[in-house]
Deep mutational scan, measured.
Amino acid sequence: VTLFVALYDYEARTEDDLSFHKGEKFQILNSSEGDWWEARSLTTGETGYIPSNYVAPV
């Protein structure tokens, strides 16, 4: 499993987005949709879409 870490804070803009804080780690569930990836936060357990340019591989 490839994990990603948040480089910046992000505040959700829609109900499908996932808010997160810098340093939070994610498991990517689906990265085939372009710039927005479906991810699960390893901190909160919540699932939603995150901007791929806000995260980097651990």
Results as ranks from 00 to 15, higher is better:
Val1Leu: 14
Leu29Ile: 11
Tyr8Arg: 09
Leu7Phe: 03
Asp17Leu: 10
Trp37Arg: 02
Trp37Glu: 01
Leu42Phe: 06
Asp17His: 15
Glu11Ala: 10
Asn30His: 08
Phe26Trp: 01
Trp37Lys: 03
Ala6Phe: 01
Glu46Gln: 15
Tyr49Thr: 08
Glu33Trp: 11
Asp35Asn: 10
Thr44Lys: 04
Glu15Ile: 11
Thr43Lys: 13
Phe26Cys: 01
Gly23Ala: 03
Ala56Glu: 12
Asp9Glu: 06
Ile28Trp: 02
Thr2Asp: 13
Ala56Ser: 10
Pro57Phe: 06
Phe26Ser: 00
Val5Asp: 02
Gly48Glu: 00
Trp36Asn: 06
Thr2Met: 13
His21Gln: 13
Gln27His: 13
Ala56Pro: 01
Arg40Val: 10
Thr44Cys: 04
Ala56Asp: 05
Asp17Ala: 15
Lys22Val: 10
Tyr10Ile: 01
Leu3Ile: 14
Asp17Cys: 10
Ser41Leu: 07
Trp36Arg: 15
Glu15Gln: 12
Ala6Tyr: 01
Val55Tyr: 01
Leu18Ala: 02
Arg13Trp: 09
Ile28Leu: 07
Trp36Lys: 12
Ala56Gly: 09
Ile50Asp: 01
Gly23Met: 03
Ser31Leu: 10
Tyr54Gln: 06
Ser31Gln: 15
Leu18Trp: 04
Asp35Met: 12
Gln27Ser: 08
Asp9Thr: 06
Asp16Tyr: 15
Ser19Glu: 04
Ile50Gln: 00
Glu38Asp: 04
Glu15Pro: 14
Asn30Tyr: 07
Pro51Cys: 07
Ala12Trp: 03
Glu24Ile: 02
Thr44Asn: 06
Asn53Thr: 11
Trp36Ile: 08
Val5Thr: 06
Pro57Lys: 09
Ser32Phe: 11
Ser52Asp: 03
Ser32Pro: 10
Glu33Gly: 14
Arg13Leu: 12
Arg13Ile: 13
Pro57Glu: 09
Thr2Asn: 13
Arg40Asn: 04
His21Arg: 14
Phe26Leu: 09
Thr2Cys: 12
Leu3Tyr: 13
Tyr54Pro: 01
Ala6Val: 01
Leu42Val: 09
Trp36Cys: 07
Thr47Ala: 07
Glu24His: 07
Ser52Val: 09
Gly23His: 05
Thr47Gln: 11
Trp36Gly: 03
Ser32Leu: 11
Ser52Gln: 07
His21Trp: 09
Ser19Leu: 02
Ser19Asp: 05
Thr44Tyr: 03
Glu38Val: 15
Thr47Glu: 09
Asp16Ser: 15
Ile50Leu: 07
Ala39Met: 05
Leu7Asp: 02
Leu3Glu: 11
Thr44Gly: 03
Thr44Asp: 03
Gly23Lys: 02
Trp37Gly: 01
Phe20Asp: 00
Leu3Met: 11
Thr14Val: 07
Tyr8Gln: 09
Ala6Leu: 01
Gly48Ser: 01
Glu15Thr: 14
Val58Phe: 11
Leu42Cys: 12
Asn53Ile: 09
Gly45Pro: 01
Thr47Leu: 08
Val55Thr: 04
Ser32Glu: 12
Trp37Pro: 01
Glu33Asn: 15
Leu3Arg: 05
Thr14Gly: 15
Ala12His: 06
Pro51Phe: 06
Ser19Thr: 09
Glu11Met: 11
Thr14Trp: 15
Trp36Thr: 06
Ala12Val: 02
Ala12Asp: 02
Gly23Glu: 04
Gly48Asp: 00
Ile50Phe: 01
Arg13Glu: 12
Glu38Gly: 05
Ser52Asn: 06
Leu7Met: 09
Leu7Trp: 03
Asp16Thr: 15
Ser41Pro: 01
Tyr10Arg: 04
Tyr54Arg: 07
Arg40Pro: 00
Ser19His: 07
Thr47Pro: 02
Leu42Lys: 04
Glu46Phe: 11
Phe26Pro: 00
Asp9Gly: 05
Glu24Gly: 02
Ile28Ala: 03
Glu38Thr: 11
Asp16Arg: 15
Phe20Trp: 01
Val55Phe: 09
Arg13Phe: 10
Tyr8Gly: 05
Thr2Phe: 12
Gly34Ile: 13
Asp35Pro: 10
Thr47Ser: 10
Gln27Leu: 14
Gly45Ile: 02
Leu29Gln: 05
Ile50Val: 09
Gln27Tyr: 14
Lys22Leu: 06
Lys22Glu: 08
Lys25Ile: 15
Ala39Gln: 00
Tyr49Ser: 06
Gly34Phe: 11
Thr2Val: 13
Thr2Trp: 11
Ala12Pro: 05
Ala12Cys: 05
Leu29Pro: 05
Leu3Cys: 10
Val5Asn: 03
Asp9Met: 04
Lys22Phe: 06
Ser32Arg: 10
Asp35Val: 11
Thr44Ala: 02
Gly34Met: 13
Asp17Ile: 11
Asp17Trp: 10
Gly45Arg: 04
Pro51Ala: 04
Phe26His: 00
Ser52Met: 09
Tyr10Trp: 09
Trp36Leu: 09
Gly45Glu: 05
Lys22Arg: 11
Tyr49Ala: 06
Tyr10Lys: 03
Ser41Trp: 01
Trp36Asp: 03
Thr14Ala: 13
Val55Ile: 11
Glu11Ser: 11
Leu3His: 11
Arg40Lys: 13
Val58Gly: 05
Asn30Trp: 08
Gly45Ser: 06
Ala39Ile: 03
Glu46Met: 14
Thr47Tyr: 08
Tyr54Val: 05
Tyr10Glu: 01
Glu11Leu: 11
Phe4Lys: 03
Ala6Gly: 04
Gly23Leu: 03
Tyr10Asp: 00
Leu29Cys: 07
Val58Thr: 08
Ala6Cys: 02
Asp17Gln: 15
Glu38Pro: 06
Thr47His: 08
Val58Ile: 13
Tyr49Glu: 03
His21Ile: 13
Lys22Asp: 02
Ala39Asn: 00
Phe26Met: 07
Asp9Gln: 04
Ser32His: 11
Leu7His: 03
Glu24Arg: 01
Ala56Trp: 09
Tyr10Cys: 04
Asp35Glu: 13
Phe20Val: 04
Phe4Cys: 08
Val1Cys: 14
Lys25Asp: 02
Asp9His: 06
Ser31Lys: 12
Lys22Asn: 04
Val1Lys: 11
Glu46Thr: 08
Ser32Gly: 10
Glu15Gly: 14
Phe26Tyr: 01
Phe20His: 00
Gly48Lys: 02
Tyr8Met: 10
Trp37Asn: 01
Thr43Val: 10
Asp17Val: 14
Leu42Tyr: 06
Lys25Leu: 15
Lys22Gln: 08
Thr14Asn: 15
